Amino acid sequence: MEMWDCYTWDRQKLDHQHPRGVPLAQGEYHLVVEIWTVNRRGEILLTQRHPDKPYGCLWEMSGGSVLAGETSREGASRELREEVGLMCPPEDLVYIGTVVRGWSIVDLYRFDHDFDVAALTLQPEEVVAARSVTREEFLTLASQKQIVPHVSLEFQLYEKKILSRNSQ
Rank of each mutant, 00 (worst) to 15 (best):
D5S: 13
Y7F: 15
W9Q: 11
R11E: 15
R11S: 10
Q12M: 00
H16G: 03
Q17W: 04
H18S: 07
H18R: 06
P19E: 11
G21K: 02
P23R: 02
Q26R: 03
G27M: 05
G27D: 09
Y29P: 13
Y29K: 04
H30K: 15
L31A: 08
L31S: 09
V33E: 13
E34A: 10
I35T: 15
R40Q: 14
R40C: 10
E43C: 11
E43Y: 12
I44H: 08
I44C: 12
L45E: 05
L46D: 07
L46W: 10
T47K: 14
R49H: 12
P51D: 11
D52N: 14
K53C: 04
K53M: 15
K53Y: 10
P54W: 13
W59K: 07
W59G: 06
S62N: 13
G63D: 08
L67A: 12
A68K: 06
G69N: 03
S72G: 13
E74F: 01
E79G: 00
E82Y: 01
E83T: 02
E83F: 01
V84D: 01
V84T: 02
M87K: 08
P89M: 01
P89R: 12
E91P: 00
L93A: 02
V94S: 02
Y95K: 00
T98L: 13
V99L: 03
W103T: 14
S104L: 05
I105A: 05
I105M: 08
D107L: 06
L108M: 10
R110A: 11
R110K: 11
D114K: 06
L120S: 02
E125Y: 07
E125I: 02
V127G: 05
A130Q: 06
V133C: 13
T134I: 04
T134D: 06
R135D: 14
E136F: 09
E136W: 04
F138G: 07
S143Y: 03
Q144N: 11
I147E: 05
V151H: 14
L153Q: 15
F155H: 07
Y158T: 07
Y158S: 14
E159T: 13
E159F: 08
K161E: 15
I162M: 15
S164R: 14
S164T: 15
R165K: 12
R165W: 10
S167P: 00
